[in-house]
Nucleic acid binder design. Structure first.
Lengths: 104, 104
DNA sequence: GAAACACTTGGCAATATTGCCAAATAAAAA
DNA sequence: TTTTTATTTGGCAATATTGCCAAGTGTTTC
């Protein structure tokens, strides 16, 4: 892959779609939780304190984007992180926040 | 900073705010461009092909979040990247995309 | 098979985001 | 000082996101 070509408009749109999937507190919480191992929808609902349908829709956004994958076992559906590098974002997000706190 | 405490709801909300600021194709393009050095608003407008007011508002979102900073010199306002670690996101975003392409 | 369980999907109202135009501001040039 | 250049801000319509309830799907348990 040639690394010095500027990304196209479509590249930025595709990337933004992934960022959007990450840009919600509940979904960030779910990702953090899934970094500890797979979880069923009901466990994530308890943590999120939201309606089950709401949690399910958040998960389907993450799944459609390719960030998580699911597997049905018995009555339950388990989700797990498919692309763990998104976890690296958290450190940087926090450093943006502390940078902003230090100055205006 | 104790690293094993789970982030609070507020932590996730603050992080999501930063992610949201990044979750737009035009703003991602601006960040990529600013990684090459400071740019004035007019240069970014030419690249974005959007109304100047639109570009200015995108930049103020990035500024309010703490991702970029601005400096007025003469007639122009120059923006530069304040927290370069956000550039590391791009590789991971692309790997999410290729992971999704490889499987459903 | 009927009931219970674990989800997903449809629909909709409330809210947030986006992008343009027009108007305001601020510095430089004439 | 008037005009031009560079940018920001206000306002608004179009669009997207969010979260709940209700209804639907697929398993398992009885």
């Amino acid at each position: 892959m040639l690394v010095h070509l500027r990304p196209t408009q479509e590249d930025f749109e595709a990337r933004a779609k992934v960022m959007k999937a990450l840009a919600h507190p509940t979904r960030l919480m779910m990702i953090e939780e899934l970094s500890r191992g797979e979880r069923c929808v009901c466990e994530l609902r308890d943590l999120a304190d939201r309606d089950l349908s709401t949690v399910s829709k958040h998960l389907s956004i993450l799944k459609d984007t390719g960030i998580v994958e699911d597997e049905k076992r018995g009555k339950q559906v388990f989700y797990r992180l498919r692309v763990p590098c998104v976890l690296n974002f958290f450190h940087c997000l926090d450093s943006v926040l502390t940078a902003r706190d230090r100055l205006g």
